[in-house]
């Protein structure tokens, strides 16, 4: 039944397709068009003097991909990688960036009318990259605008690096 409803919504084009993942106790979602692939945790090479949220770089089939730890970025405590830890490789603009998440759940079709603007009280996190909150029954999915997550990171990174050079 749920399938039929989803299908109907898909047909009318009134859904957003997101890849949902967990981070701490919360569930986040990013637009599926920004996700390139999801890989298991691999060894991350530390890059000295890089901004603190920059975990390092990985080798993805011969390409270097910077890895951002969303936990650090969002001010959550760091945890060791587990079996379910994943790297979501995203492509924004023409830049590939990997983000480390606790686990990846599924691809969701969220009806557009179920997506609300971010509540004001979340403002502390820096709401510029929270697009809204999607409701799927009891679940709340925080929809991230990765372009903003990364561009504001870059800005910050740039300031950090410039601040570090004498």
């Amino acid at each position: 039944m749920a399938d039929a409803r989803e299908q109907a919504q898909q047909l009318s084009g009134e859904v957003v397709q997101v890849v949902s993942f967990r981070l701490g106790g919360e569930e986040y979602g990013v637009d599926i068009s920004q996700v390139q692939e999801i890989i298991r945790m691999v060894e991350i090479t530390h890059v000295p003097r890089a901004p603190h949220f920059m975990e390092g770089v990985i080798n993805l089939r011969g390409q270097l991909i910077p890895i951002i730890d969303l936990r650090t970025r969002f001010g959550m405590p760091r945890i060791d990688a587990t079996k379910s830890t994943r790297i979501v490789v995203t492509e924004i603009g023409n830049k590939r960036v990997g983000i480390v998440v606790d686990s990846v759940s599924e691809v969701l079709n969220i009806p557009i009318e179920n997506v609300e603007d971010a509540p004001e009280m979340v403002a502390g996190v820096g709401t510029e990259y929270i697009q809204g909150v999607g409701k799927m029954g009891e679940r709340l999915i925080i929809m991230l605008d990765l372009t903003m997550v990364i561009s504001s990171e870059e800005k910050q990174a740039l300031e950090t690096v410039e601040g570090a050079t004498p």
Binding site: V47, P48, V57, A157, V161
Partner: peptide, 12 residues
């Protein structure tokens, strides 16, 4: 090149 991946890092 690393600079277009993580920005310019002094010493690298």
């Amino acid at each position: 090149p690393l600079s277009d991946v993580v920005g310019r890092i002094p010493g690298i």
